[in-house]
C-alpha cells in the first residue's frame, strides 16, 4: 500500500470534522472522496499534507508513519496537494508560481526543465508566464495550480475539488489530464463534489457524510448504487 489512512480524526477546537476515517491508495490508483460540503473531505487532505495535526489515527506512506510531520517534509516525500480554489499566489507571475512548486528542488537545471514541461503541457501558460496569476481565467488558474504541483515531481497528488467553478469544456480537459497523469505513473486522491465525474475517473470511491465514511467500494459499484445515485448523482 502506497498511502494508508487509519482511523483518522481531525478536530477544529471542539468540533470534530473527521471522525475516524480509513482509506488506502495503491500505486497507480485513483481514489476519490465524495460528499457534501463540510463532510470533512478537505480536512482529510490537509491532515495528510501536515497542514492540520490529526487528533487521532495514523497516516502511513510507504509503510512509515507521516502524521505529525510538517508540510515541507510531506512534500519532500513526494505527496503534493493541489488545494481547493487553486490558491495561487495571485500577486506573483505564473512563472514565479511554478518556480515555487519546485521550492525544495536544489537542481536549477531540473527546475528549468520542469517549467518547460508544464509549458509543453499547457501552451497557453507559456504565453502568460509573466502575468500575475490572479489575472488568469479560472481554467488557466487551475492549470497553474496543477502545473505548480507537478513541479515538485510528486508520487502522490492530492487534488481538492479541481473541477470547482470551471466551464464544462474545462472540466473535460482537467478530467483528461487526470487520466493522463495516472498513465504517467502518479497515484491520485481526488476530492470532489462532482460525484459523477469523480467516480468515472476513480478506481475506488469513498462517500463521506459529516466526517465519517458512509459507503465505500469500487467506483462502478458506487455508480450503480441506488443510494449514491439518489444522494450524489442527481438521478
Amino acid at each position: 500500500m502506497l498511502l494508508e489512512v487509519k482511523n483518522l480524526r481531525v478536530h477544529y477546537g471542539k468540533v470534530e470534522a473527521v471522525k475516524g476515517v480509513s482509506l488506502s491508495l495503491r500505486q497507480g490508483q485513483i481514489i476519490t472522496l465524495i460528499g457534501a460540503n463540510g463532510a470533512g473531505k478537505s480536512s482529510i487532505l490537509k491532515a495528510i499534507s501536515g497542514l492540520v495535526r490529526p487528533s487521532g489515527g495514523e497516516v502511513l506512506y510507504e509503510g512509515r508513519r507521516i502524521d505529525g510531520q510538517p508540510p515541507n517534509r510531506v512534500v519532500e516525500m513526494g505527496i503534493v496537494n493541489v488545494p481547493e480554489g487553486r490558491r495561487l499566489f495571485k500577486l506573483m507571475t505564473v512563472r514565479e508560481n511554478l518556480r515555487l512548486g519546485a521550492y525544495l528542488d536544489r537542481d536549477s537545471r531540473r527546475v528549468a526543465d520542469g517549467i518547460e514541461e508544464v509549458f509543453d503541457r499547457f501552451p497557453i501558460l507559456r504565453e502568460k508566464q509573466h502575468q500575475p496569476s490572479g489575472k488568469l481565467s479560472g481554467g488557466q488558474q487551475q492549470m497553474v495550480a496543477i502545473g505548480r504541483a507537478l513541479m515538485a515531481r510528486p508520487k502522490v497528488l492530492l487534488m481538492d475539488e479541481p473541477s470547482l467553478g470551471l466551464s464544462p469544456k474545462m472540466i473535460d480537459e482537467i478530467a483528461a489530464l487526470i487520466v493522463e497523469l495516472r498513465k504517467a505513473g502518479l497515484s491520485i486522491v481526488l476530492v470532489e463534489q462532482n460525484a459523477n465525474l469523480a467516480l468515472h475517473l476513480a478506481d475506488h470511491g469513498y462517500v463521506l457524510e459529516t466526517g465519517s465514511i458512509a459507503l465505500e467500494g469500487p467506483s462502478d459499484r458506487l455508480l450503480s448504487d441506488p443510494e449514491v445515485a439518489r444522494a450524489y448523482l442527481g438521478a
Binding site: P71, R87, F89, M92, L100, Y103
Partner: peptide, 21 residues
C-alpha cells in the same frame, strides 16, 4: 528563491507551506 518564498508566505502562508516552504 528565498525572496519568492518570502512573498509567497506574505500572500498565503498555508499554500506556501504546501510548496515545501
Amino acid at each position: 528563491v528565498t525572496g519568492l518564498a518570502i512573498r509567497a508566505v506574505a500572500e498565503d502562508p498555508d499554500t506556501a507551506a504546501l510548496q515545501g516552504i
